[in-house]
């Protein structure tokens, strides 16, 4: 690569190489290991699966070991309803949460983008502020708020709205509250970026051509903010599908999300191969939306170029 490139190919190769190296070391190699384990069989050993490929024994030995690979784990995932129910419930919870986050985040971002220019940095700061506290601590704080003897119930009981404490923790409602709260900034920030750079004279032009403010919103503001909506939805949806901490701490035994199922397989059953298969399928489920997202981004770039 160096040699004929007039722009100093060596340096260029290095700069381009770093992200690829990063991806290979921290994504591709771990993924290949997980993929390999997902085709193995569980065993009472260290590591707890066979075959444990040992390249030191030479290629022939590796080939012999590779013959032991099996797709049993994937077949197992289709046979036990637990898994596909967990996948579906995860997707559903993530989808509903994303919708709720959009519903709350859009007005928030809109208000921020239309606030006087000197307030905006402060408002953005306030959206980012929760990140300064550990995610785990914030989820625990929600337990303190939502539990039967928690803050919310105390206030509602004191005001007299309810006679006995509401049971929120341990239900899907608590999971929704947790996800909506935790992921709101990921929706608000791209939306704010999209709304803030919109040219306000476009709204004047629309008004001039006979548009009431509410019509202008749906015909001008919203369509032009769609790249922000798409970005925000993916930033919320993708991590929400695999969410583990929130359903584990706020959800109950009835909350069947795939992140928790994976954790159980790995740490409780010590079934690394099945846990790996769960992870591989989860990755596939999420790669599809990512690809759609990237295509969408490409289209938007072409449109705005």
């Amino acid at each position: 690569m160096a040699g004929p490139d007039p722009k100093g190919g060596g340096g260029r190769f290095l700069v381009l190489g770093i992200p690829y190296l990063w991806l290979i070391v921290f994504f591709l190699i771990p993924f290949l290991i997980v993929l390999k384990i997902s085709f193995s069989t569980t065993a009472i050993a260290i590591p707890p699966y066979t075959p444990a490929i040992d390249f030191a024994q030479g290629l022939t030995a590796v080939w012999e070991q590779a013959k032991e690979f099996t797709t049993d784990n994937y077949v197992w995932l289709t046979e036990d309803a637990l898994y596909w129910k967990a996948y579906l419930e995860s997707l559903w919870i993530a989808l509903v949460s994303t919708f709720l986050v959009l519903l709350i985040g859009y007005p928030l971002a809109y208000g921020m983008a239309r606030a006087p220019a000197r307030w905006r940095p402060t408002l953005v700061m306030m959206v980012i502020l929760p990140f300064w506290t550990s995610f785990l601590i914030r989820v625990y704080a929600w337990i303190g708020i939502l539990k039967p003897e928690g803050l919310l119930n105390q206030v509602l009981l004191a005001v007299g709205v309810i006679d006995e404490p509401l049971v929120i923790t341990g239900t899907n409602l608590a999971v929704y509250i947790g996800i909506v709260y935790s992921y709101l900034p990921f929706m608000v920030l791209p939306l704010y970026a999209a709304l803030e750079r919109q040219d306000q004279t476009l709204l004047e032009a629309a008004a001039d051509l006979g548009c009431r403010p509410i019509e202008s919103f749906w015909k001008i503001t919203f369509p032009l903010s769609l790249p922000g909506v798409v970005a925000g939805c993916f930033l919320v949806f993708i991590p929400a599908v695999g969410e583990f901490v929130i359903p584990d701490l706020l959800g109950g035994s009835g909350t069947l999300m795939i992140g928790r199922t994976l954790w159980n397989e790995f740490f409780l059953n010590r079934d690394w191969p099945v846990a790996s298969a769960v992870a591989v399928i989860l990755l596939l489920v999420l790669v599809v939306p990512i690809v759609i997202f990237q295509n969408q981004q490409k289209k938007n770039e072409e449109r705005l170029r």
């Binding site: 040219d199 004279t201 476009l202 004047e204 032009a205 001039d208 001008i220 032009l224 705005l304």
Partner: peptide
Amino acid sequence: MMFQSYALFP
């Protein structure tokens, strides 16, 4: 009105 920036809907 014809706007100075044209304000065409992109």
